[in-house]
Simulated assay, not measured.
Amino acid sequence: MIELKQVTKTYDTGKGALKAVDGVDLSISSGEIFGIIGYSGAGKSTLIRLLNGLEKPTSGTVQINDQVITAIKGVELRKARQKVSMIFQHFNLLWSRTVKENIAFPLEIAGVPKNKRDARVMELVELVGLTGRENAYPSQLSGGQKQRVGIARALANDPEVLLCDEATSALDPETTDAILDLLVDINKRLGLTIVLITHEMHVIRKICHRVAVMEGGRVVELGDVLSVFQAPKEAITKRFVAQVTETEDSNETIKHLRELYPTGDLVKLVFVGDQTEQPILTKLIRTNPVEVNIVQGNISHTQRGAYGTLILQLKGTREEIANAIAFLNNENIQTEVMAND
């Protein structure tokens, strides 16, 4: 569906060249919800502008549905852009137009007759949950409602790809979850490919199938969201995962837990998928003569399954604790001794 090959974008800043995107290779499947995460300056906003042809790469190619976006221009490029829509952080609505007039705007530009335009607008109003608000102006809407208008407008021309540029970062947590649920519903109903950029791991965890982590213009880590949560490799990815797992293995965290639980071993367990629903601790206690105390835990749900971490305090002899850890490993539970007695 989307293929980026060795894509680089360099800007001349007057003080030298700035490489915003540096040799990125990406392949995104049709119907996938794909996340791109990174902090400010990572290059993710530039990358998404390359996907819809608003920017041309300095080198490399961007291909969408067998059409090389980097090789076309003029009328052909404008037609291609109609199949790649975008929603924005700050909504970008026309404040002098009502909800239905905002949604109709791209259809007007495309020359769609008024009767077909009106029917399509009402379909979209219902799809995004704004029935009864179609005659309201943006100033009369909440932030979440404004973003729903933005989503409906982006869907007006039946795009094949929906790009989301920090689409929820201006919203409160509850509204963010509602908008993310809407995007998942649209993805399932329409089979739409969604590419979103964000600096919030909660967004990635909740709706994405795969994620690319960007730093310094490069993709430094790429994979299935559940796999990335289970075993993040890069330091920046570990920081992002810690945003939602709340079990960051920093020296400070371990020191704090050691002060609270000064005896025994502190052991972190990682559960993935169906493991989160298994009575592993019950079996551990029944089969091993160790004292088990739950210190800290968290379960996060992703589109591909659940991911959980649990920190235990294990008390017993060295042999008993070693046998307990061996039992957990035999149950395919990833274990890590964070601190010894």
Rank of each mutant, 00 (worst) to 15 (best):
P113G: 03
P113V: 10
N52C: 13
P106G: 01
G53R: 01
L77G: 00
G53C: 08
I37P: 00
L51Y: 04
K79D: 14
D66T: 10
I72V: 13
P113T: 07
K100L: 12
P57N: 12
S59F: 03
N102H: 12
R78Q: 14
T46C: 10
E108H: 04
S40W: 04
V112L: 09
T46Q: 04
D66P: 02
T58H: 12
H90C: 07
Q89W: 07
M86T: 07
S45I: 06
L54G: 09
A104V: 07
A80H: 09
R49M: 11
T58I: 09
E55K: 05
Q89I: 04
S40Q: 14
R49G: 06
E108R: 10
R81W: 08
G38V: 03
D66E: 15
I48R: 05
G74K: 08
T58S: 15
E76L: 09
T61A: 11
G38D: 10
L94D: 07
T46K: 06
A104R: 02
L77T: 09
L54H: 04
K56S: 14
V68G: 00
P113E: 08
V75I: 07
A104G: 10
G53L: 10
S85D: 03
W95M: 13
M86N: 02
A42E: 02
K56W: 05
T70P: 05
Q82D: 01
S85R: 00
V112M: 09
L94V: 15
S45N: 09
G111F: 06
A80L: 01
L54D: 02
R49Q: 14
K44M: 11
G111C: 07
I87H: 11
G38Y: 09
L51I: 12
I87G: 11
I72Q: 02
V112C: 04
K114Q: 14
S85C: 10
N52P: 07
L107F: 08
S45E: 06
N65F: 08
N92H: 13
G41Y: 13
A71G: 02
K83N: 14
K73V: 00
A110Q: 10
F105Y: 14
G41Q: 11
S96N: 14
L47H: 04
Q82P: 06
L93T: 01
E101H: 02
